[in-house]
């Protein structure tokens, strides 16, 4: 089989794999539309899919601007979360004593409801990008740290023995074994973190903002424009999905050797 036909069949498999989800999605939409029509539900309470579609079209320009702003917050915040999350995991593993001191504090911090911090960050960092980035960072770094730690620590003990038996130093083991070994775990953590990042951006905008999708949702609900609230929600979800699959593509490029995890078919 040639490379090309292989890719073609890959795509085919991927598309047919999405088919059941698509069908279910369409069924739900049709039912939703029918229920609204039959029971004559007010558009202020719950708009029909057709109302949402109309609103999407009518507000396309405003939604696009807001999307860019929110996407930027998500991306920058996530980048900070990734850097902090990875750095913490590396420090904890490399300096055990420091790790023993720090880890319980991180866990403790994790139990603080971060949403409650949003107003404080607004107070400290103003209305712009900064408070959103900080909020996203504190929400999203933990899954990255945790999964990275698992990856770094789960190197087979006998492999470590093997390295030590030839006089390898802990730095060698870290760089050449632990870090590459942790990559698949890191990617899993990043997938969780990116969805947290989207939530963080919206919460941050709720707490205080003058632009973005979260701001639009809040503004539209004060105007009783429920259709626009839903239209913005649709766009937020799309942003999340796009980022999620971007990481999955990155994973395939960066660590082609890792076993592919199929969340559905392996269950």
């Amino acid at each position: 089989m040639t490379d090309k036909s292989n890719k073609g069949s890959d795509l085919f498999v991927a598309l047919t794999g999405m088919l059941p989800g698509l069908v279910l999605f369409l069924v739900v939409l049709v039912l939703w539309e029918l229920i609204i029509q039959v029971f004559n539900v007010s558009i202020f309470v719950l708009p029909a899919p057709s109302n949402i579609a109309v609103s999407l079209m009518a507000n396309a320009a405003a939604l696009a601007t807001a999307t860019l702003i929110t996407a930027k917050e998500v991306l920058v915040g996530f980048a900070f979360a990734a850097v902090v999350g990875i750095a913490l995991a590396l420090l904890i593993v490399r300096f055990r004593l420091f790790g023993r001191a720090l880890y319980p504090l991180i866990v403790l911090f994790q139990t603080v409801p971060k949403v409650a911090l949003a107003p404080i960050f607004i107070l400290w960092f103003g209305y712009d990008l900064a408070p959103k980035i900080v909020l996203i960072m504190v929400i999203a770094f933990f899954p990255i740290t945790l999964d990275m730690l698992v990856g770094l620590q789960s190197v087979e003990q006998s492999f470590v023995s093997l390295m030590k038996s030839v006089g390898a130093k802990e730095n060698d083991i870290m760089l050449r074994v632990r870090i590459p070994h942790a990559m698949p775990h890191l990617m899993a953590g990043m997938k969780v973190a990116i969805t947290f990042s989207v939530i963080g951006a919206i919460v941050g905008e709720f707490a205080g903002a003058s632009a973005g999708l979260g701001y639009m949702i809040q503004f539209a609900s004060t105007q009783l424009d429920t259709a626009l609230v839903f239209a913005a929600l649709v766009v937020v979800s799309l942003v999340g999905v796009v980022f999620y699959y971007a990481i999955e593509i990155l994973e395939r490029i960066l660590i082609p050797w890792a076993p592919k995890f199929d969340a559905v078919n392996r269950a």
Binding site: E156, S158, F159, S161, L162, M163, S165, V166, A168, D172, R176, V177, P180, H181, M183, I255, W257, A258
Partner: peptide, 24 residues
């Protein structure tokens, strides 16, 4: 040393795995 588990690095080819400890 040879253990019960082959302990090969999954991201390296057989050749690079076999060369790995010497290089380290």
């Amino acid at each position: 040393l040879v253990f019960q588990e082959a302990n090969l690095l999954p991201w390296k080819t057989a050749l690079d795995n076999a060369a790995f400890l010497l290089q380290v």
